[in-house]
Amino acid sequence: MEVRTIKVFTTVDNINLHTQVVDMSMTYGQQFGPTYLDGADVTKIKPHNSHEGKTFYVLPNDDTLRVEAFEYYHTTDPSFLGRYMSALNHTKKWKYPQVNGLTSIKWADNNCYLATALLTLQQIELKFNPPALQDAYYRARAGEAANFCALILAYCNKTVGELGDVRETMSYLFQHANLDSCKRVLNVVCKTCGQQQTTLKGVEAVMYMGTLSYEQFKKGVQIPCTCGKQATKYLVQQESPFVMMSAPPAQYELKHGTFTCASEYTGNYQCGHYKHITSKETLYCIDGALLTKSSEYKGPITDVFYKENSYTTTIK
């Protein structure tokens, strides 16, 4: 009895394709271990004539594949690729409408935090270190965002349907971005203890939790000093293409032309909904596939993004 075979390709990165001759009487799992086709788990399936010449994702289970996976995804987590594939199996079914010149995501599976993050990423200057993220990001900007969303979920250790947080998501993504040249110098002034300067680099240099107003941050924000008295913390120097200011959701007025974009969060910790506000020729609110415009805006804002380049204080 002759062994019926077909020729397929296996890959971990969709760049390096490895030619395989597979036995049609055995499952993919018996031949390769966990195997995925377009995100779908085909591990328990036997090869079919229609699979001839198709590319299958496999887990990096030998040295060659491990090197290829690390170079593309910059992670050695053995569960990463499987999590990416199972997320992709959902995100490829989502709709990605162009809204006001940006790629958004039609609401499904509690994905409003991903839509808000995706919209924000198209408006701030950011370059990702893992080629996987950078490639998928370019495709997302062009309207094909399924891979990018699935990668975000995998890097953030999230599953489809789980509630997510924009600030946490951005923080994970910033860790995989090139923020080497970003720098922030802060000064804390206390009447009792004097003053202390701190220099922050990388992710810490672009994120701040405690106030939404970048102007206020430049002037000074009140913080408790270690001595128990009130101290003032203010920005001395900022070198970065953008800054992200966050605070627990509270009524906040966004003035046209003073910011790049913002995240609105309605609801409580267990259950809520994100919308995205962007400042173009007027203010726009993007909620999944829905767009509304207004000249002014007041609502429960939790993150505001500002364009920056270089700032030095005039406070002496």
Rank of each mutant, 00 (worst) to 15 (best):
Y36G: 04
E144G: 06
A69W: 05
F80V: 08
I223V: 15
R167G: 04
N100S: 12
H74T: 01
G164F: 02
M24K: 13
G210H: 07
T199I: 12
Q123E: 08
S294H: 15
E125R: 06
E253P: 07
D180W: 09
P224M: 12
P248V: 12
V42L: 13
L254Y: 00
T211K: 01
L290S: 15
A262V: 08
D303G: 00
P60A: 11
D77A: 05
Q197S: 11
K46W: 12
A140H: 06
Q251V: 08
L186V: 15
V12T: 09
A87R: 03
K93R: 13
P249C: 04
G210N: 01
D63K: 07
Q230W: 12
Q216P: 05
T91C: 12
A132K: 14
G161I: 04
G164S: 03
T258V: 10
S86F: 10
V8Q: 01
G82D: 15
K201P: 04
C156T: 07
E239S: 08
Q222K: 14
T199E: 15
P34S: 12
T232V: 12
L65T: 14
T260M: 15
K293A: 12
L102S: 08
S104H: 09
Q175W: 05
Y297F: 06
P78D: 10
D165G: 14
F32V: 11
N16Y: 06
L186A: 09
Y138F: 10
N110A: 07
D62M: 04
V58P: 06
G33W: 05
G288A: 02
P300Y: 14
K183D: 03
V8I: 14
A231T: 02
C285N: 12
T192P: 04
G288L: 03
Y284H: 10
L37N: 12
S86V: 13
S279Q: 07
N14A: 15
L212M: 03
L88R: 03
R184N: 03
E52T: 11
N157I: 03
D109G: 01
P131E: 10
S79F: 09
Q270G: 07
P34L: 11
N49F: 09
Y274R: 00
G220L: 03
L118F: 11
E239P: 01
L17F: 12
G228C: 03
L81H: 11
M244L: 00
E296T: 14
S104R: 06
Q197A: 12
T266W: 02
C225W: 03
A262L: 00
L114V: 10
L186Q: 12
G101E: 09
I105Q: 06
Q30C: 12
L186T: 12
T211H: 05
L88D: 08
V58Y: 04
F148I: 04
Q251E: 14
K191W: 02
L102M: 14
H51E: 11
N89F: 12
T282I: 08
E308M: 06
M244H: 05
L291V: 15
G82H: 15
L290I: 13
S310A: 14
C149H: 02
A231P: 02
A142T: 13
L212A: 03
T292H: 11
P224F: 09
S213W: 06
T312C: 08
V206R: 07
I45H: 12
T27K: 10
R139V: 05
L290T: 12
K307V: 15
V221T: 03
K255W: 07
W94P: 10
T232I: 13
M24I: 13
S240M: 00
L179R: 03
V243I: 11
H276I: 03
E215V: 02
K106N: 10
N268K: 06
V243M: 05
Y311T: 08
R66Q: 13
A177Y: 02
Y269F: 15
L114F: 08
G29L: 08
V236S: 03
K44F: 13
H18W: 03
E308K: 06
L153W: 01
N187P: 02
V12H: 10
K229Q: 13
Y297M: 08
N49P: 12
L179A: 00
G299N: 07
C227I: 01
D180N: 15
Q196A: 08
L254A: 02
L65D: 04
Y155K: 01
Y311G: 00
Q238M: 02
S310H: 14
L17N: 12
T64I: 08
D109P: 01
L212G: 04
E71R: 14
S171M: 13
V21Y: 14
N187V: 10
F174P: 05
H256I: 15
T282M: 09
E253F: 04
V166D: 00
G33L: 04
H18C: 09
N49D: 13
Q216R: 06
Q31P: 10
Y214H: 07
Y297H: 07
V189S: 10
A140Q: 02
T282G: 12
D109W: 01
I6W: 04
T43C: 13
E308G: 06
L212H: 08
D23A: 12
Q251A: 09
E296C: 14
T258E: 12
C193G: 02
E296I: 12
S79Q: 08
I301C: 07
C182I: 05
S295A: 13
L121S: 00
A250W: 01
T232E: 05
F128H: 07
M85G: 09
N89Q: 07
K316D: 15
Q195P: 08
Y137G: 04
K106C: 14
L37A: 12
L121T: 06
Y306V: 03
Y113E: 03
G202V: 02
M24E: 12
T266H: 09
L291F: 15
E52F: 09
I15N: 14
C193A: 02
Y28A: 07
L17R: 11
K275G: 00
S213R: 00
H18E: 15
D38T: 07
C156W: 07
V221G: 01
T27M: 13
H256P: 12
G53Q: 13
G33T: 02
G228W: 03
K275W: 03
G53N: 08
A140K: 05
A250M: 15
Q230K: 10
T211P: 06
S263C: 09
A115M: 14
S86A: 14
P130Q: 00
G202W: 03
L133C: 00
Y234A: 02
V243P: 02
Q195K: 14
T159D: 09
K255L: 08
T120S: 12
T302V: 10
V22T: 12
H90N: 06
S104M: 11
T266Y: 03
Q31V: 14
P249R: 08
V22F: 02
M26G: 14
T35R: 09
G257H: 00
I286G: 06
Y113S: 03
D23P: 14
S79M: 11
E162A: 13
T312A: 10
T64M: 15
S240W: 00
A117T: 09
Y311S: 07
K7I: 10
L119N: 06
I277G: 01
F305Q: 05
K201W: 14
D41H: 05
K218P: 01
Q98M: 14
S263W: 02
D38V: 11
Y274N: 06
L212N: 06
N100E: 14
H90K: 12
L254S: 02
G220S: 01
N309Q: 09
A250L: 05
K93G: 12
E2K: 07
R83S: 06
F305N: 13
C156N: 05
A177Q: 05
E215N: 02
I315Y: 15
L179E: 04
Q196Y: 13
C227R: 03
S86R: 12
A115K: 00
S294R: 10
